[in-house]
């Protein structure tokens, strides 16, 4: 008798497992249940296990283990006790040692972040304050095909109104009593809500995309109903 698990059946088996996992995870939509919990834990476990294996095969083995063991670069052994310092956080007596390695990486990361902040944020700030209302220069920014001599200053004006209104909403240093300031601040609040609405709309689009992907898998790969 030929085994069901022969190579030409592997694709079918994988699809069935994928379909069962998908349905198990979507069972939460009906109500909280143990099947969902099982597949949730399975998914998290798989993700972590996969990450560990890839970290070993792609990073630790070729960059640390092999040079240390096979290529005579014995000094890589010093990385092991340094890395183990992270785990001293679990011992009340030795937890102070973890601060050494955490402190080292905090310093390293902070230094890198300063450089990144300057390189990433300064052009953004420059672009945000460069909004001429009269005779704006030709817009060369990518995606700005719709910018014309009329729409460009109008766009800049709208941008300016939004920035001023939203910033006035965040002036908490003094009580806002002046009617003009109150009105601008209120406008800022509405504009913020527009922005949050746009972000939330994008979030819905993203979630629906994921649903479509899973349903396509069920209908196309599993049930062969979709084209």
């Amino acid at each position: 008798m030929q085994s069901f698990f022969r190579p030409d059946n592997i694709g079918v088996i994988v699809t069935w497992i994928g379909a069962i996992c998908t349905l198990g995870l979507y069972s939460i939509l009906y109500r909280e249940n143990k099947v969902f919990r099982f597949f949730e834990h399975l998914f998290i476990g798989l993700g972590v296990g996969y990450g560990l294996v890839i970290t070993w095969t792609d990073v630790l083995k070729p960059r640390w283990w092999d040079p240390m063991v096979a290529e005579g670069q014995w000094w890589w052994a010093a990385a092991l006790p340094a890395a183990l310092l992270f785990y001293t956080v679990y011992s009340r007596r030795n937890a102070w040692m973890s601060r050494l390695i955490f402190g080292f990486f905090f310093g390293l990361t902070a230094g890198q972040a300063f450089q990144r902040y300057a390189a990433v944020q300064f052009p953004l700030i420059r672009s945000a304050v460069n909004v001429p209302l009269i005779n704006p220069p030709e817009v060369t920014a990518p995606g700005a095909y719709w910018m014309t001599p009329i729409s460009a200053p109008l766009n800049n004006l709208i941008f300016l109104v939004i920035v001023v209104s939203v910033m006035s909403y965040f002036f908490f240093s003094y009580e806002q009593k002046n009617k003009a300031v109150l009105g601008t601040s209120k406008l800022g609040r509405y504009l913020l809500m527009f922005a949050f609405g746009a972000i939330f709309g994008s979030t819905i689009m993203a979630r629906l995309s994921l649903l479509i992907g899973r349903l396509y898998f069920l209908l196309h790969d599993w049930l062969h109903l979709a084209s």
């Binding site: 052009p123 672009s127 945000a128 990518p142 995606g143 689009m205 993203a206």
Partner: peptide
Amino acid sequence: TAVMAPEAFPFLKSGQISG
């Protein structure tokens, strides 16, 4: 992802990303 797009548009406006 669509969730991240609103935060990416300023980079497009500033010319830091091309598309």
